[in-house]
């Protein structure tokens, strides 16, 4: 399988009046054709900022990208790309859908205008053909009477329908990579299941890669092939879903799993993680999870843990040699 995107040692900080916020601090992961990678973490763990930063969708300043690389298939480094190159990639080879379907569509423009936009501006189709394509895209995501829907405004649709419109819009250009930022969080559970199924089906049809950002481990379990666990702007653990869920290597992942109700394992009592996430302006040299970790040692506070890789590429950043079960 060809890698679609390889992010290596990405470092991106916000320079604010309150200090330097180390929002993304040495993040690496790879995503291949046709696979779904889940990025999990609490809110504020940098999982969204990380994706927005290499797509250069955050205002710089206050954000500054300090190092690393984000190589697309074909070798283009997004961190070194010109604004024009970036624009030609965004919404074309790499599309994105967002959490809030209510506010992510422009309320002043018809759905049709917004849906045709990516096709037109990337010079793929004329206005007329774009409209035909847009109708087909709407039908594919399950919107009845698609040609009438094109003439309507976003506020005339329900939340789930708007998210379908967002997905249709992201997929009109047949992207290689779809970045989905909590696309189901704002929706109710039945609609959530429908949207997940839709994404799975679309992936099978197009072979695109999906980077799925969520804080919901249940959603990850149902859609992702591999997982990246993030905390305080850093990757804690990454591996296949089975590896991360059943052969957990990192105490943070373990704590996260213990705080989530599961049907597949007898957990006993659910426990929340004690303490609160660290202030990203005041991270020390050690492991950011140090203060909340049940297995903390002296080394943890001083030295950032090295990467430990298993032969299957299951990786964790922890001083601990093997996690007690």
């Amino acid at each position: 399988m060809k890698p679609v995107l390889e992010v290596k040692d990405l470092v991106a900080h916000f320079y604010t009046r309150r200090g330097v916020v180390r929002a993304v601090d040495g993040v690496s992961f790879t995503i291949h054709e046709g696979e779904t990678v889940g990025v999990v973490g609490e809110s504020g763990s940098g999982k969204t900022v990380c994706q927005l930063s290499y797509l250069r969708l955050l205002p710089e300043p206050p954000l500054r990208i300090l190092g690393g690389s984000a190589l697309l298939e074909g070798g283009l480094d997004l961190l070194k790309a010109s604004p024009n190159q970036l624009r030609s990639i965004r919404g074309n080879r790499v599309s994105m859908i967002f959490q809030e379907p209510m506010t992510s569509l422009n309320p002043y423009l018809t759905v049709g205008t917004q849906l045709c936009e990516p096709l037109q501006i990337h010079g793929l189709l004329s206005r007329k053909d774009a409209a035909i394509q847009a109708t087909a895209a709407l039908e594919r995501v399950g919107i009845a009477d698609a040609s009438a829907a094109l003439k309507r405004y976003p506020h005339e649709f329900s939340g789930g329908m708007r998210q379908r419109v967002m997905i249709a819009m992201a997929l009109t250009t047949k992207p290689k990579l779809l970045i989905a930022d909590e696309p189901t969080t704002a929706l109710d559970v039945t609609v959530q299941a429908q949207i997940l199924q839709l994404l799975r089906d679309l992936q099978k049809e197009t072979g695109m890669a999906i980077l799925f950002i969520t804080h919901d481990l249940g959603v990850i379990a149902s859609i992702a092939h591999r997982v990246v666990v993030m905390y305080a702007g850093r990757v804690m653990e990454r591996g296949t879903v089975d590896e991360v869920f059943y052969q957990t290597q990192h105490p943070y992942t373990q704590a996260l799993l213990r705080s989530t109700p599961r049907l597949d394992v007898d957990q006993g009592k659910l426990s929340s993680i004690p303490g609160s996430p660290p202030d990203l302006t005041r991270l020390g040299d050690g492991c950011p999870f140090y203060g909340r970790c049940a297995y903390q040692r002296d080394a943890c506070v001083r030295v950032y843990p090295p990467l430990r890789l298993t032969p299957t590429q299951h990786a964790a950043y922890c001083h601990l040699e093997g996690l007690p079960r």
Binding site: L55, L57, L86, R87, S88, I89, R90, G91, N92, S95, M96, F98, S104, L105, N106, E117, P118, I121, H122, M166, M169
Partner: peptide, 8 residues
């Protein structure tokens, strides 16, 4: 942000 993500 959506519009930027579309490459406009």
């Amino acid at each position: 942000r959506t519009a930027r993500a579309k490459g406009l």
